[in-house]
Amino acid sequence: MTFLELLFILIIGYYFIYLILWLILDCNVELWYNTYFGLPISSMRGQVVWVTGASSGIGRALVLILAKYGVRLVISARRENLLELLKKDCLEQANGLLSEDDILVMPMDVLNISQHEAYFDRVIKYFGRLDVLVNNAGRSQRASWEEIKVQVDRDLFELDVFSVVNLSRIAVRYFLQLRNVRGHIVTTSSIAGLCPVPFSATYCAAKSAINAYLNSLRLEQSGIDVSIFCPGPIATDFLQEAFTAVPEEMYGKSTKGQKRMSAERCAILFATTIANKLELSWCGLFPVNFLANATRYPGLAKIIFKFMGKSTMNKIREGKL
């Protein structure tokens, strides 16, 4: 066997193993590896982490996981009553690792951009520091491309893009003032930002946009860690408040009975991404994870998506396959 023949076999074997992993894992290979061999979530104990959109869904599940390992928390969302209930649950999960003073309940509407500086100052005044900002607040969308009103595009971008960018810029300016400390910006994006899906044009565009913003930040500020976490369909009430084609209208449908990853599993993977400061991670049940991996190879993705068609892709997206 010649060297070139051996090299060819090794390359084929490498991609074959990766293909198998695409089929059996519920996340990308780097994230899967770090869940077993990377830094544990417990390595974040004592850090101060601010999570927006914390009162429900992925945000709530993430906060509970972080509390379990003694991470000090700032929890923000619009509904203060839900945040207070979450704080109680966090203290139970912490099992003595956190005290009442280790969790700051800070109600906020991320769309109120003029108040972002005041919110940020309150966090620093309370804890004296911030280690990680997790931009998790946001909404999805269900609508036909040609029916979407421009105001919906504007409203969704205000929430999923511009509010994230503004708060992150405040955090970045703060981190740049620190010496010998690396700040960490984390954002909940979506597989829809990597792999466009039907009937969510504005949402796909918004998630693609926030990915581009954060990738640019990573290039410009190498001293700050930037993580983009892209979940696929997750078993939460996320669709209840999803945008449609019409301004101020909510989709209002449940995800019960659909094939979706649990919020708890998603939160573990999310927390692992944060602990290991992974640049880009994604998760989702088969075939979502397979499709997300395929998007890293445009030629392959084009063939797969053309073969599947929008109907099949929509069924996958809605947890019906």
Rank of each mutant, 00 (worst) to 15 (best):
N136Y: 03
G128K: 10
N135H: 05
L85M: 11
Q141E: 14
G128A: 10
Q151E: 15
R122D: 06
S114M: 04
G128T: 05
Y126N: 08
M108R: 09
F120M: 07
L83I: 09
R129A: 07
L111E: 11
V123N: 05
R139W: 04
L83S: 08
S144K: 14
F157M: 14
Q151L: 10
Y126M: 04
P107W: 04
V165A: 14
L82H: 13
I113P: 00
D101I: 01
V105L: 06
S163M: 11
S140M: 05
D155W: 01
R142H: 07
I124H: 06
V123H: 02
N112V: 04
F127W: 07
Y119Q: 10
R129S: 10
N135V: 01
A143D: 02
I113T: 14
I148W: 01
N112E: 14
L85G: 09
W145A: 11
L159N: 09
N166Q: 13
F127E: 02
G96I: 03
V152L: 07
G138C: 08
V134L: 12
I148H: 03
E146Q: 10
D153R: 02
V152H: 03
Q93C: 09
E146D: 14
R129K: 15
I103L: 09
E84N: 12
S140H: 02
F162R: 11
R139Q: 10
V165S: 01
I103P: 08
S163R: 12
L133H: 02
Q93F: 10
V164L: 12
L97D: 01
Y126A: 02
S99C: 09
V165K: 13
A118G: 00
V110R: 06
G138H: 04
M108E: 06
D109H: 08
